[in-house]
Every structure is written in C-alpha cells, then in structure tokens.
Simulated assay, not measured.
Amino acid sequence: MDDKLRERLRTAAEAHRPDRERILARVERGMAEGPSARTPHAPRGPLPWLRVVGAAAAVCGVLAVGAYAVLSAGGGQTRGGQVAAPSVPSASAPAVPGRVPELRTEDGPLWADGAVDPHSNAYWAQSNATLRSTQPLSSLTVELRIAQTGGVNTTGSWRSLPEQDFTASAQEKGGFLVYRWTLKPGRTVPVGTHTFAGQYNHAEGDRSADGDYFTANAARTTGQQVSVGDNFASDH
C-alpha cells in the first residue's frame, strides 16, 4: 500500500513541479497523523492522504485548463514547458515617405521641371528630372526621390550629359528610392537643357507620383550657389 501511495504522489508531484516540495511536505504530515490521530467524534471523511492527492489533482487540473485556454484564445505554443506568446504577423505595407518639401523651380540661371515619362506603364515607370542652365556650372548634384508606394525597385538610370563626368548611385532611404548624380571635380556642365532619369518597377496599377520630387544644387563658374527642384504631382 505504501509503495502504491508513494508512486501516485510522485506522479502527481511531477505533473506540477513548482509545488512539489509543498505537496510532499503535506503528504508526510498527513501520513504522520494517520487514523489514530482522529478523535471518536470527528466526522468521517476522506483520509488525509486522499485529501492531499485530491488537492494535487485539482491543482494540476486547473493548470492544464488554464494552459489550454491560453493556447486556444491566443494561438500560442508551448516551448520548454512554458506558454509562448502568439506571434504577430509582420507588416507588409509599404513605408510611408516624408512630406515633399517646398521647392522653387527657378534660381538665377537654373530652371527645373519634373515629369513622369509618357512611356511608363502599369508595371514600370521612368521619372525625368530636367534642368536648363543659361550659364556653365562648376558643380552639380541632382537627387531624384521616388516614394516607396509598393514594389518600387530600381531598373537603372541615365543622364543626357557624358557618363564619365558623373558618379551615380541608387539606394533605398527613408521610404524613398533615391537616385543621385554628382559632377566630378574639374568637370563643367555646359549651357543648355539636360535630363536625369530614374527607371523603376512598381506594384501593378496606375501608380501615383504625388510623393516624388527632385532637387538640384549647383554652383556657377563664378562660385555663386544656386538650388532648384520640382515634384511629379499629377496636377503639376
């Protein structure tokens, strides 16, 4: 009888490890009291060791039901005996770009115009940043920013000025696909109209270019700084 009792108690204690020591202590006290400790007038009921086993089973049952409720309600999983918090799906929405800054299209000898190329389609587009200068420029940096409206990724770029006169790059930054062209030291931009174009794929559909814009910072050969820019809004 003692061996069977201890085996049942050991099984109940292992099912609820955090209270194992307390349960064993209560069992020992119950066995020490035994039937002889009962008074003649005490109401008959379950022996102390049966009460202990019943309490242990009840505790285990409550824990099991609680864990099942957490898993059912939150979709959690158990890892190493602990209930894990339900995973949160990652957001797939495109990044929200910043506001288009205030831009002026003319400054001294430099003039700017932004437009989406008419050959763009439902999957691909080209944005044209056009500059017209009535004086030579000794420095020039053009930045074209295409808002990340979904699926926007570069497919290339070009400029009407000589390729060897510029360093070019394209990178994702702050919710935009950013194209940059920088005139190399010792080179000069001549008088005339010049185009800088960025090409890119985008999510299927009629893409809005309202969040796109470009800026151009330049210096005349005399050293005076000038700055222009324009957006690509549909009502432009």
Rank of each mutant, 00 (worst) to 15 (best):
M1S: 01
D3K: 07
K4R: 07
L9H: 13
L9K: 03
A13H: 00
A15Y: 02
H16C: 02
D19Q: 07
I23Y: 14
E28G: 04
E33S: 11
E33T: 13
G34V: 07
G34Q: 10
P35T: 11
A37M: 03
T39C: 00
A42K: 05
P43L: 12
P43G: 08
G45V: 03
P46V: 05
P48G: 08
W49Q: 10
R51V: 13
V53H: 12
A56N: 07
A58T: 05
G61Q: 08
L63Y: 09
V65C: 09
V65F: 07
V65E: 11
Y68C: 00
Y68D: 05
Y68A: 10
A69F: 12
A69Y: 04
S72Q: 12
A73D: 11
G75L: 10
G76D: 02
G76F: 05
T78M: 15
G80R: 10
G81W: 11
Q82Y: 13
A84S: 07
A85G: 01
P86R: 12
S87H: 03
P89S: 14
P89N: 01
S90P: 06
S90G: 15
A93E: 11
P94E: 10
P94H: 14
G98P: 02
R99F: 03
R99D: 04
E102Q: 06
L103D: 06
T105G: 03
E106A: 15
G108W: 12
P109S: 15
G114V: 01
G114F: 00
G114H: 01
V116N: 04
D117H: 15
S120E: 06
N121E: 12
A125M: 06
A129M: 06
T130M: 12
T130D: 08
L131C: 09
T134Y: 07
T134G: 12
T134Q: 04
T134L: 08
L137I: 09
L137F: 14
S138W: 08
L140P: 05
V142N: 01
A147M: 03
Q148I: 02
Q148E: 15
T149M: 12
T149W: 08
T149Y: 11
G151W: 06
G156T: 06
G156A: 03
R159Y: 02
S160R: 10
L161C: 02
Q164C: 02
Q164V: 08
D165K: 03
A168I: 07
A170D: 13
A170N: 12
A170C: 08
A170S: 14
Q171M: 12
E172S: 14
F176D: 14
L177V: 09
L177T: 06
L177D: 09
V178A: 00
V178G: 00
Y179D: 11
W181H: 11
T182W: 02
K184H: 04
V189S: 09
V189N: 03
P190V: 03
V191R: 15
T195F: 05
T195K: 11
G198A: 10
Q199T: 14
Q199P: 00
Q199N: 03
N201H: 11
A203F: 07
E204V: 14
D206Q: 10
D212Q: 01
R220S: 09
T221N: 10
T222F: 06
Q224C: 00
D230Y: 00
D230M: 01
N231E: 01
N231H: 09
F232S: 00
A233N: 01
S234D: 11
